[in-house]
Every structure is written in C-alpha cells, then in structure tokens.
Nucleic acid binder design. Structure first.
Lengths: 216, 216, 216, 216
DNA sequence: AATGAATGAGAGTTCATTCAT
DNA sequence: CATGAATGAACTCTCATTCAT
C-alpha cells in the first residue's frame, strides 16, 4: 500500500519534490528581493511577495518562518555579491584597475537593489545588524590587510592611520550608490578610484610603483 | 488701580497659554526625536510618542496632523543643526581647524540623533526626500565653492575633479556617525581631518600654505 | 482710568448677564439647527456648533448637558411650528382653505429644516422618539376629532374608518417635504388638498357643504 | 480508479469553498441587516457586525470594503423585495385585491427591516440616494401607467392629477410600516386599500366596474 | 504540501466631554 | 462664567500569521 502511494505521488523518483520546493523558495526570495527594493521592507506584505512569486500566502510560511527571515535569507544568499572585491593595490596601474573593480561591483549591486532596505532595518533588528556588521568587519579587515602590505612595501603615506584609511575607503565605496539616487547621473568611477588611490599612495610612490611593476 | 489690573491679568510673568502649548509641542517633538532615533520611524506609534511626552493620544493630533508631519517639523527645526559647518580651507593649519570643526559638528549631531531615521524614509516619502536633497545640495555647493577658491589660489591637486572631491568629502563626513554605531569607539577626528586635507591639498602645498599664512 | 474700565465693562446693571446667556443659548440652538439640517446629527460635532455660534467648545456644555440635549431643546422649542395646523373642515371651500393652510405650514417648516435629522435618530433615542410620538399623537387626535365632527354632521363617507383616515391624512402631509427632495419641484398644494378632501367628503357632500355655508 | 477519485476529491457533495465563502457573505449581510435595523447605521460598528455573524473583524473586510458597501450590497440584493407589487386596478374587486397585495408586500418587507435605516442615510450618501431614487422613480412610473389605463377606460376621477395621485398612493404605502412602530397594532390593510381605491375611483365607477367585470 | 480564508492584535485617527486657567 | 487645550474611549481598517480543507 505504501508502495502504491509512493508510486502515485512520487512518480518522478526523488529530486523533483526537492527541486520543486527549491524553485518555490527561490521564487519567493526573488520576489521578496524585487518588492523590498521597490517599496521598502515595511511596505511590502507577505501576501504580495507570495502572490508575486505565484504561490499562496500560506506557502510563504512553509519556506520562511516569517517575513524577516526571508530578508535574512536573502542577505545571507547575497551577502557575497554585496562584498566589494579585494583590490590588488600593488599593481602597474592601481587607479584604473580599481576603477574597473568598482564599476563591476556596483553594476552587480545595482541589479541586486537590496541595499536600499538595509538602512530601514538596521536600527530595529539586532540580528540583522549583527550579520551586516560581521560582513562589514570582514571587508574592513580585508582592506586593512591590503593596506598593511602596501605600507610594508613602503608605498603608503607615512602619517595616515591605516585604520582610519580603511574606514574611509569603505565609507566612500558605500556611498557610491547614493550618487545615482541623488544626482541621477552615473558615478565617475575613474575619479573615485583616483581619489581612493590618492589616500593610499603619495604621488611619488605611484610613479615608483608603475616603474617597478613594469620592470617585473 | 492700574496695579490691580496688572495683578489680575499679568500675575504670571510669562505668557501662560502660548507657552504651555509651545512646551507641549516641544515635548512631542523631543519625544518623537528620541523614539524615532531609538526604534525607527515605522516602529514608533503616535500613541507612544504622546505617552512618552506625557500627554494623551488626542493631544498629539492637536499639534501635528500625523506622525509624518511631526517628523517633517522635526527636520525643518533641526536641519540647520545638521548642516556641517563651512570649513575655512586657506588657513595656517587646515587639518586641525577642520578636526575641531568636525568634532563640534558631530557632537551636536549626536545629541540630535535624528539622522538615524532618515535612510528609512528616503525611499518612501518624496517630500521628505526633496527637503533633504535640497539641504544636501546646499552643502555640496558650499563645499564646491570652497574648493574652487582653493584651486584658484593654486593650492589644490591639479588632476582631481572638484565635483567628485566635494562629493567624497560629504560622503566621508556623512559616514562619521556610523563609526560610533559600528565600532563603539569615538571617531578619530584628527585622522579624518588629515585624510580630507590630503584629498584637497598636495603635501607640498600644505607646507606652502602654512608658511604663507604665518607670514601674513 | 479705572472708572473708565468699570464703566466699560459693567455698564448695564443686571439684566445683561442673563440676556447675554440667553443670546448664547439661542445662538447655539440656531447653529445646531443649521448644521444638523445641513450635515445630519452624527456628522455635526459639538465643536463645530460652538464655533459656528461664535463661542468656545466648553461654553456649549454650560448651556446644554450634551449634544443630544441641544437637539431635544431644539425640538421642544420648535415642535409647535412643526405641528400642522388644525384644518377647519366645515367650510365654504375646504379644498382651497386646506391648500392655503398646507402651503403656509410647509413654508415655515422648510425654513426650519429640522425634520431632516429626525429619521436618523428615531431608532436610537427612545426619549426623542417618545417626544415626537406624543406630538404626533396629538396631531392624530386633533384630526380625528375634526373628522368626527364632519361625520356627525353627516358630511363624511359612511364606509371609511375615521382612524385610518386620520392616519392617511397625516401620512400624506408628512410626505410632502419629500417631494422637494426627490423631484426638485414644489409640491402642488391645490392638488394635495383636493386629494385629502376627496378622502374626507363624498363629492355630493362637498356641493351640499358649499351651498349650506353660502346660505349661512 | 474513478471511485478513488470520487472518494478523494468529491467527498463533499456541495462545492465546499465557494459555498463557505458565500455563506459567510450572507451571514455578514444578514447580521448587518439585523443590526442596522435594530440600532441604526451609524450606531452599528463593523466589529459588531462581524462578531454578530460569528467571524473576526478582518473577515468583514474580506467581503466588504467597508460598512457602507455592505449596506449598498444589502440594498441591491433586497431592492426587488422592497418594490411594491403592481396592482391590477381594473378588476372585479380592486379593493380586496389591493388589500391582499399590500398585506403580502408588507409582511415580506417587515422581515427585511431594512427600510428603517434608509432615512438616516439619504441626506448623507449621494450614491445611496441615487439608487433609492431610481427605484422609487420606477415604482412611480409603474403606478402612473396603471392609473393612466384606468383613466383611459373612463373609470378615474376627472379632476385629479394622476401625478399627484400616484405620489399620494406611494406616500400612503410607504408610511404603512410606521403604523406598527407607532401604534404597535397591525395596519388595517382593508381600510387602507379602500382609501386608496377611493382616490382612484369615484364610487359610481366602482359599481360599474364590478358589474362590467362580472359579466365578462 | 499547498491553499487562501480567517484571525485578531494593533495602528492611526476622531470627537464628546472635562477641567485648569 | 468663558475658554479651548487635554483627555481617552472607541472606531475603522491593515496585515503578519495560523489553520481547516
């Protein structure tokens, strides 16, 4: 009897069930992503997300314990994409390589759109703040390590604290998305990269670096 | 006899009715400020604000047409305090004068606490976004004008776009409050000032500036 | 100087105080009347009535224990005007004298406007219903008595119950105001009077009556 | 196999989901009807209606956008039952056939109870007034047409305007429910029918009519 | 598992009535 | 007495979440 049942309901051996489920989960995540980015977290209802994903309201709660959890899942899924890439400072042309990096990063991020809801929630959701803080810390450490290498190699300003410097770089990078919101025009990644490099390298070191690397 | 009159009508030296009303209004604004900063805009109810201010729910609606209007009033009241001061770049010691300026500004701002809710609302409230955008534009123009003077006097980097530079300075300054939220420690205003100055002045110009100003 | 003051404020000896009070009461009643007729009872606030009458909200409650009481006072004041007049049936020309009576009555009533709120309240306010019911009963008895005289004098239909007849006359008269609301045009009082007389008198009795009365 | 299916899917003979929903809708309408009739429209809250219907507050708003919409639905559902039937005037015994018609109509209407709230709302809700006005106009036209036939056949009073006559009949009929409210006793439909017939037919025409119809 | 109707706590708002000035 | 600010109960409506089918 149980075999019968299995045959009836589970005609395709095993994967489909899970595959279906995963598809729905993905659809919900995607819909949440889109709607949160469009209308903000509080202004998006669970019903809307479900309906946008083409499932029933109740189904939402089979996959996520609540609306908040969907957001956290979204973040965990996407956090990597939101991480800025680690720049390779000691390079023939750090300015233009940084510009390229930034451009690529923000074009990905822009499609994601998720960063728009984060400010809305940071003050209210400690766990979320924690998760993001951890991510940020990771970025910070990464940049700091990179800068330490630069300094060890003698290419950095002598008198700038690497900690504040790392923080400044992150601050600048994080503010880039606002340029679009506020001015409507696209950010000038070349100029921003140049500014960041100015903070990292004294001008004469830049020249040194170019020559050095070209020789290698 | 006229004394009688004065005694009768003017017994309390301060205008009682209007003063009371203003006090209540202020209390509501203050409570809104505190609660918005603590728990975010959406998570704070009109009832809570009223009760925190020690008045009844209905009283809230005598002074403000709704929660949103209280926030807008708060902003209009406080926008000036939120404006960063205009730095005087051409100065004997721009770094330390900037550091002092920043410290004073953020200590004021910190008491205000209002900036925490703004990101939450920018995407949802066009009028609010407008008000803030206008304020920001003003700051931007102020800084840009200052930098143009620096450049005209030949003290700026030759190859940095003043527009991107202005934007970067604002970006850095705006991010300062997050340092406290995230690291718990106080910002190192000296270092930040140094970094900003590095973006404005090439090192040799800094020295020139110091000598020049000292001679005056 | 102080004398001046006293003269200014306390010039009229005693009546004015009471007169003032009555004036205010009247103003409130009038404003209530106007606003109730315009917007209905529930849709009119005590504040509005007070402000329309040019007094403060609190003053309203010095003159009336509550909104409902103002309405009851209004009714008691105006109930007489709302009473339809007693027709004199045994008359040379009952049709035209009735028509004149009805016209005069409804032109007064129309200025009053109060009847518009009554239906709104009859089901909710037992005391009000009582008051109005009593008034109506009085009208009913009056009409019934009139009809009995007509019958005693042998001028009425033999086969109509005077009770139902009285009720029918009241019903018709009470419905007259709706003509204006619904059709926009003015009621044809001559026709209505003719119809009512048709219910009271058989045609041959009408002729008898005319002759009889002319002879007198 | 088909048996299996039937057992699985068609266990309950009646469409379960839609039927349930309709039941709830009906329950809400009924509760609204009862409560409006009992306590008036403004004095009945959406919560009360829901609770009286045995559902939660929110459920109310699944079926009706608001209280007003429930009332409009009620009216649209019930308007037909509220329409008085078209009397057949040219009849052996118009008086008793009219009496029977009226009795049947008001016994239906009494169960409905809805007419009690209408006066409360007519002054405030234009759409509602429109709907009711249209219904009334229909009744009016119906009666007018019937009377015109009577007149064409030479059975009506010569000197009464059919328009005012139609209006008077409606007025009388509409007032019938108030008899119960006010006197507590049941209306005497025979007498009312007699009165209405007296307005339509002169006495000699009544006799003619009886003879004529009996011969046919 | 999926569905979507049902739930009910709670947000925003109004207004009759009170009360300090 | 007059004032009008203050009160808070009560109302309408929303939406995250549950649950019967």
């Amino acid at each position: 009897m149980s075999e019968n049942n299995e045959i009836q309901t589970g005609y395709f051996p095993t994967i489909p069930k899970q595959a279906r489920a995963l598809e729905k989960r993905q659809a919900l995540l995607k819909s949440g992503n889109i709607l949160f980015a469009e209308k903000g977290y509080e202004n998006t209802t669970a019903k809307e997300i479900a309906s946008h994903a083409g499932v029933a309201t109740g189904t939402f709660y089979r996959y996520f314990s609540d609306k908040r959890q969907l957001l956290l899942s979204l973040l965990k899924d996407k956090l990597e994409s939101m991480m800025p890439p680690e720049p390779n400072w000691l390079n023939v042309d750090p300015e233009s390589s940084l510009a390229i990096l930034l451009k690529a990063h923000f074009e990905r991020l822009d499609k994601l759109g998720l960063y728009r809801v984060l400010p809305e929630l940071l003050h209210r959701d400690e766990e979320l703040a924690e998760v993001l803080f951890e991510a940020k810390r990771k970025i910070y450490m990464q940049i700091l390590k990179g800068l330490e290498q630069v300094k060890e190699n003698g290419f950095a300003w002598e008198d700038l604290s690497l900690e504040t410097l790392s923080w400044s770089i992150i601050a600048l990078v994080e503010k880039i998305p606002e340029i679009q919101n506020e001015s409507g025009s696209n950010p000038d990644y070349d100029q921003i990269a140049k500014i960041i490099c100015r903070l990292v390298f004294p001008p004469e070191k830049m020249i040194q670096l170019k020559n050095l690397k070209r020789e290698e």
